[in-house]
Design a protein around this nucleic acid. Sequence first.
DNA 1: AGGAGCGGAGAACGATCGTTCCCGCAGTCG
DNA 2: CGACTGCGGGAACGATCGTTCTCCGCTCCT
Lengths: 176, 176
Amino acid sequence: MDDEEARTRLLDAAEELFYRHGIQAVGMDRIRTASGVPLKRLYRLYPAKESLVTAYLERRDRRWTTSLRESVAASAQPPVLAVFDWLARWFSEPDFRGCAFLNAYGELGAAAPEVVRVHKAELRSLLAEWAPAAAPPALADQLLVLVEGATAVAALSPGPEPARRAREVAEILLAK
Amino acid sequence: MDDEEARTRLLDAAEELFYRHGIQAVGMDRIRTASGVPLKRLYRLYPAKESLVTAYLERRDRRWTTSLRESVAASAQPPVLAVFDWLARWFSEPDFRGCAFLNAYGELGAAAPEVVRVHKAELRSLLAEWAPAAAPPALADQLLVLVEGATAVAALSPGPEPARRAREVAEILLAK
DNA sequence: AGGAGCGGAGAACGATCGTTCCCGCAGTCG
DNA sequence: CGACTGCGGGAACGATCGTTCTCCGCTCCT
C-alpha cells in the first residue's frame, strides 16, 4: 500500500465516519481502525485532525460539484431543472444525511475550514451560470434558496420529495 | 438564587454557548462558569449533559414558535408572507448562526434528541395552517423548502437578503 | 552476512471531558 | 450552645481525546 492508496483509504474512512456521526464524535483511532492505515502514516500524511477534516471536505466538494456538473450536462432537461433531478437522486441514497458542509459549519462554527464557504459560493455561481440569460439577476439567489431548502428538509426526512417540491417551484420561476 | 432562577441561568448560558460554538465543543465546566451555578446544583437540575441539551432545545423551540406565531398574528401582511418578514429580522440578529435544530442534528446525527424532529414538524404544520384554504396541499411543503432554504443560506451569509429572496418566491406561489 | 533505516503495532502522554466526591461553612432546631 | 443538615467550591476520577514515542521486525545495499 503506497501513500496514495493510504490517502484514499483514509479519506474514504473519514468521509464515511465524519459524515455519518459528525466530526467531533469520531476519533482518530476510529479512522485508523476503519482505514487500516497505521497512526504513524496517518499523521505523516495529515499532520493533524484538522487537516484530515479539510481534506475530507475538499475531496467531497470536488466530487459533489463534478457529479452535479456532469449530470446537468448529460440531462435533456433545462440545466436548472436537471439540478433538482440530481438532488432527488442524491436525497434517495441510503446514507444521505444532509449537506456535509452545512453540518460542518453548524458543528464547528467559526472554526470551520474555508472550504465550507467556498463550496457554497461555487454552488451559487453554478446556478447563476445555468440560469437563463434573460432571467433577472435575483433568480440565482432564489434558486439557491430552493436547493438549500430541499437539502435541509431532506436531511430530516430523506427521500426525493423535497427535491420534487423545490423543482415545482423552480419551474414556476422559470416560466414567469 | 432558587432552583428556578438557576434553571434560567443554566439555560441562558447553555443556549448562548451551545448555539454559538456547537454542543460537543462546550464542556459542562464552561456552562458552570458562564452561569455561575455550581456544578453540584447543575447536576441536580439536569442529571446529565444530554438532559441539559434537550432542555436547551425545548426552550428554544417554545420561544421560537411563540415568537413566530405572535409576529404573524400581529402583522398586516398575509400570514405566509409575514413569516418571511419575521425571518428577515431573525437573520439580522448579530449572533444568528442558522437553525439550532438543524445544527444539532448535523452534529449529533441519530443521537439528536427528539425535539429536533418535533420542531420541524411544528413548522410544517404552522405553514399548512397559514396557507390559503384554497391552495393545493403541496404548498405547505413548498413553503417549508423556502423557509429552510432561507435559513440555511443565511447561516453562512447572514442578513435579511435570503429571507427577501424567499419571500419573492412565496409571493409568486400565492399569486398563482 | 550484517548493519542501517524505515514502517507497523500499539503503548504511553498530557489534556480535557462528563461526572462524582470531599470538605468546610452557614443556617436551623433541640 | 451544640449537633445536624444542606449547599457551594473545587479537587479528584475514570474515560477518551489528539498526538507522540518505543520497540521490533523487515528490507535493502554493499
